[in-house]
């Protein structure tokens, strides 16, 4: 963007002088976008590898399938991004997804109308998020512990509803699940993809164009400073867990559309996938740095690796985990290098 024009203060120390010289030489890319760009490059590269190795990989539908198969994860990653931007963490999202599928399946089986089911699920997820956020704020407990408790609580509640898998036969849900939207070029996507993309756009708007969103970044940058500046830190710190809870519930609804069943053991460990996507997408776990778009690309990278391995056919799906693990390490190393250079 711009080399700091330190016109008024002569930058005397050699450190600052060389720093401004360095940023002057760079081609208009602010440093904070670098991790996102790096993730995007990795995505293009992995997709490119697939296109070269396998026939039919580089098709619009494979790309569309990436979104279809990961719509719920995109929504989860969006919610997780808010939490991580404040420097927090939410371990409960996978369990909340499972709980959402259970509530949806059981309520539909009991004959509830679909709209009421949707509202109930979203309210439950947001309520859980609110409760966790309140405990974190009120008692000053670390988010890790509180959301860990939330994770066990939500998972346990699933089993209270039913230990068996409950299939969804409701016509509205079935129609939503099987319905498809045709895009130009014969590519089809599901309603789930549309919902996920709307969630992404809403998140970008809130984070970048509202006071709430800017306060999220401020809290992540320095909570003390944010409070001294008179910002509404309490509202934001609790709010991000509500958003994450809401996103988990929404993700749970998409997941129940995807699986057409509710099951207590759905989405085990999915919170870690969401965190991985956010980190691969360039957000710092310490907070204050990151973009929703990065998290989306992070999900796409994870999805592409999975697709690659399914195209390979002979490889076990555990290879996905190994590659994701290696990628995570690589990204954290990359971030450290970028951070240290400044």
């Amino acid at each position: 963007m711009v080399a700091p024009e330190v016109g008024a203060v002569p930058a005397k120390s050699p450190g600052s002088a060389s720093r401004s010289a360095r940023s002057r030489g760079r081609v208009n890319v602010p440093k904070r976008f670098l991790p996102v760009i790096a993730t995007f490059v990795v995505f293009v590269a992995t997709f490119g590898v697939g296109s070269v190795r396998y026939e039919g990989f580089a098709s619009g539908q494979v790309m569309a399938n990436l979104f279809i198969d990961n719509a719920f994860l995109i929504v989860l990653a969006v919610g997780m991004t808010f939490v991580i931007l404040t420097g927090g963490i939410d371990l409960s999202v996978g369990s909340v997804v499972a709980l959402s599928t259970m509530i949806a399946a059981a309520a539909l089986q009991a004959g509830w109308p679909a709209w009421l089911v949707v509202i109930t699920v979203l309210a439950t997820g947001s309520g859980l998020g609110l409760a966790m956020g309140w405990v974190i704020h009120r008692f000053g407990v670390q988010p890790f512990i509180v959301t860990l408790a939330g994770m066990f609580l939500a998972r346990g509640l699933c089993f209270v509803i039913s230990v068996e898998s409950v299939s969804i036969k409701d016509p509205t849900f079935r129609d939503l699940a099987t319905g498809s939207i045709e895009l130009p070029g014969g590519v089809t996507i599901t309603y789930g993809v549309v919902i996920a993309l709307v969630a992404v756009l809403a998140a970008v708007y809130v984070l970048h164009l509202t006071r709430f969103g800017r306060t999220v970044y401020a809290v992540g940058g320095s909570e003390t400073s944010a409070r001294l500046m008179g910002l509404a830190t309490t509202r934001v710190k609790i709010g991000v867990y509500v958003i994450s809870g809401f996103c988990s519930a929404l993700g749970g609804l998409l997941f129940s559309l995807y699986m057409l069943s509710g099951y207590s053991l759905h989405a085990v460990g999915m919170e870690l996938d969401a965190i991985a996507a956010v980190v691969v997408g360039g957000s710092l776990l310490s907070g204050g740095v990151g973009f929703v778009i990065g998290s989306v690309v992070g999900v796409l990278v994870l999805g592409t690796i999975q697709t690659l391995i399914s195209f390979e056919g002979t490889l076990s799906s555990w290879w996905t985990k190994i590659v994701i693990g290696a990628l995570l390490l690589a990204f954290i190393a990359l971030q450290r290098i970028i951070v240290r250079r400044t």
């Binding site: 963007m1 711009v2 700091p4 330190v6 016109g7 600052s16 720093r19 440093k31 400044t342």
Partner: peptide, 21 residues
């Protein structure tokens, strides 16, 4: 206050003294 820096630049790209200003 006579400080000529780009308002769109990230704060941490400036030395502490400028941040204080």
């Amino acid at each position: 206050i006579g400080l000529h820096i780009d308002p769109g630049s990230v704060l941490e790209s400036h030395p502490i003294a400028v941040q204080q200003l």
